[in-house]
Simulated assay, not measured.
Amino acid sequence: MIRRFLSLFEPFILMLLGTVLLASVLPPRGVIAMIVGVAADIGIVLLFFLHGARLSREAIRAGASNWRLHTAVLAVTFVVFPLFGLWLSRIMTGPVAAGILFLTLLPSTVQSSIAFTAIARGNVAAAVCSASFSNLLGIVITPLLVAWLMGAAGSISFDSIEAIVLQLLVPFVAGHLLRPWIGAWVTRQKTMLTVVDRGSILLVVYSAFGAAVVEGLWHRLSPGDLALVALICCVLLALVLLVTWGLGSLLGLNREDAIVLQFCGSKKSLASGVPMAGVLFSPAQVGVVLLPVMLFHQIQLIACAMLARRYAERPANPTSS
């Protein structure tokens, strides 16, 4: 039982925890901080370029045909989640409260949504479409929601919008436009994609948490506050899992599509959240704002891995299409 529980902590989670520990003990300062920041920006640009190159036109066309499922996923991601965020963020104050609300405004993940859908024997093609659409739309929708719902907490300005467009949207579109020439090669480079994906996130986390530590993060946040944020993340995930499964039944989705709605609708993207937080919030705030995002990321991986295994053990409904 213990071994099975420990197996849920994939290497990336351990690396993430190690990065936070390293940033707490040896935060980057001066020239080193500048170098780490530039490297993180380059990594994020490359990450979104590769994601754009991987998204096929066929997936876009196929996604448009299953509009009811994808609309439900987007509604949960950008409407239901923020409503829960507005409620739960009132429990905390300051940048931590902003981090909880910011978490609920992010798009869905791509990799884990697809992976858990496959494990649970859901509609993998639909999961690819839903998660990809959520990420693409989130580049625009998330900053707008931050400006609308968070007000002064997020530093939305022309420079912020320009940074998001240049760092996230332009590389994504460029990669997608070059897909006819590099798409097949990029898709085969799974190791490279994993290194860029995880390496860029670790660099941004190290830079953001290091800056927060220099500003006195661990003096402002007690162990009790940390435990409360983790509890809020657990409650948030439980609520959304219940909503997504209930919504699937209400819409009359078959088993495979209901699984897509649950796994794509309940996820929040660390890969998108990390660079967006760096653009939308001041350096002194970023580390604290990202704390709920990181905690939720780990909690969602553990809970959804267990849930996907349970679904996989159930016999498929022979009447589902």
Rank of each mutant, 00 (worst) to 15 (best):
A184G: 15
A118G: 09
M34S: 13
P315S: 05
F296T: 05
F5Q: 11
A97N: 09
T187F: 00
V76K: 06
P143Q: 04
R57K: 11
S160R: 13
G278T: 03
L247C: 10
A152T: 12
L26Q: 11
A147V: 00
P315W: 13
G99F: 02
H297L: 07
I232L: 09
L144C: 10
F48K: 10
R4S: 15
L8P: 05
S132A: 01
F49Q: 03
L6V: 09
V279N: 07
D159Q: 14
T187P: 00
S132W: 03
S112N: 07
V76P: 05
I100H: 09
F263T: 07
I60A: 00
T109A: 14
L228R: 15
S24C: 09
G63E: 02
W148M: 13
S222K: 13
Q189N: 01
Y311I: 00
L202R: 05
P318V: 12
N135V: 03
G151N: 13
W245N: 12
I182L: 09
F172W: 12
P292A: 00
P275C: 08
A147T: 09
A212R: 07
L166A: 13
L26N: 02
A303H: 01
F48G: 07
R309N: 15
L6S: 08
L50W: 01
I164A: 05
I100V: 15
S113M: 02
I91F: 14
G122Q: 10
R255A: 11
A238D: 12
T117E: 06
Q298N: 06
V204I: 13
G278C: 07
F209P: 02
A62Q: 15
D225C: 10
I100K: 05
R29A: 15
